[in-house]
Design a protein around this nucleic acid. Structure first.
Lengths: 252, 252
DNA sequence: GCTTGACCCTCACGCGGCGGTAGGCGGGAG
DNA sequence: CTCCCGCCTACCGCCGCGTGAGGGTCAAGC
């Protein structure tokens, strides 16, 4: 099977110019030409183009792709395996970024201040000892900061106060349920978990059950959030986390 | 809190040059300068940089980011929500690409030929009627193609014949189990599902239980693969699929 | 056979997003 | 006072194409 540039371009969702460019730099030269000088691509060329496209999508520069593809020790199956690994790796990174965004949203919601390093942690590993130095400043729940946060979230002062009041009311009720001795998967506890979810949804961002359970895990795994709930009442972080999980399972 | 370019650059994992560039084009100008002309970034600048970094990671050009960030109707919480959506969208796309790679690997393994369009389907929606025209050619299981496929996979002729023999032997055994009347979640069927998985792992690529169940779904949902198994024995696609699922649950 | 329109060719310039470096000033530790 | 690191501005360069300009080709329809 032979194809023209245009056909290949349409199939592979690239422009003709891109194919010309790949030909110019020798990355993908068509296997032949017609008498008139038209490029003729065959199935093997398409194989190669498919691999090129995937490596490009994964961010490889063209010259590196050329090296990778022309490595005689790598059969095509190896490339597919490799791309599979790279893709799953990228998915993992994006999921970390999602988690980081959710953390940032929750931090805003709870008035927890993050250090500069913490905010960019997701973009790469970094020097661990740069962390501790301004640790005491991290909890800077000063009024000024709360105030700037309020404005940043786009709320009026009254809105913000109402939100705060609703939150505290909810907190008191959760403490009451805890002290009544009801287990975390009791209907009462689950109901308050559900209210917690709706509070977030109403004031900040649409909080699906999936996101909600993600937050629940964060409350017990991340000391910044654990401390927030523990300061309301000891054991609250774990209790709430369990209640949220129970609620999510129950409603799904 | 005020920071120098270097501090900001290290925290955000960008180069100083990048910050200079953002300043030059007015995307992120530090809130002040020292008497000596040193750039001084504050927390609000970091907020903005964090958003910039995320939008960049998502592929937005700098001028668009400027527009998005300077939109007065969007509070920071809205940006976080938006980025959350964009990220989950990207994860979805990458997962489709992973599925496409797995499909390509299975197609190779089974000597199923894909049309040019099918190979690039994952890169975007496209004209659906371009599909049917060379449908009959798709199943071109000619010896020449099998041969090229064998070489492409990097196997010697003997290896390839052994692989083929093992496959056929496995197929006969699965037919026997089916005809014995054993259900798809019987130990015998699950054992053959497990062998199927190990066959793939030994000859082609490390096939986890997760990938394996993905393949199982493909066998019943994708007509190209369904036809392959149905041609061995009617009902085999669904039977194998169920056995694979049962096996995965059982071993997990 | 001739026209028409879609498609192909080869230059060649331009642009976005920085990387890199040159040449020089500032600042704090010893 | 000096040393060295970090900051400044200015400018050139690279990659991966986009976007013409200017011109040949091919298949269909008249």
């Amino acid at each position: 099977m032979a194809y023209t540039v245009g056909q290949v371009a349409r199939a592979a969702r690239v422009t003709v110019r891109t194919l010309h460019h790949y030909d110019e730099i020798g990355l993908l030269s068509p296997s032949g030409r017609t008498p008139a000088g038209y490029r003729r691509y065959d199935d093997a060329d398409l194989d190669r183009l498919q691999l090129i496209r995937y490596y490009r999508e994964l961010g490889f520069p063209l010259d590196e792709i050329a090296v990778i593809l022309d490595d005689p020790d790598a059969d095509p199956a190896a490339h597919l395996r490799r791309q599979h690994e790279l893709l799953t790796g990228r998915i993992g990174k994006l999921q970390e970024m999602v988690a980081a965004i959710e953390l940032a949203m929750e931090a805003k919601r709870m008035n927890i201040r993050l250090t500069p390093e913490e905010r960019f942690e997701v973009f790469g590993d970094f020097d661990p000892d740069a962390h501790a130095e301004e640790a005491e400043q991290r909890w800077g729940g000063t009024d000024a900061y709360r105030e700037s946060n309020r404005r940043a979230a786009g709320y009026s002062k009254e809105d913000w106060l109402r939100n705060k009041a609703e939150n505290e009311e909810w907190g008191r009720r959760l403490v009451a349920v805890m002290e009544s001795g009801a287990p975390a998967d009791s209907p009462e506890a689950m109901e308050l978990a559900e209210e917690h979810r709706q509070l977030i949804s109403r004031w900040f961002y649409e909080c699906s059950y999936e996101i909600h359970t993600g937050l629940a895990d964060m409350y017990v795994s991340d000391p910044r959030f654990t401390a927030h709930y523990e300061s309301i009442r000891p054991g609250m972080a774990a209790y709430l986390s369990e209640a949220i999980h129970a609620n999510a399972i129950n409603r799904a």
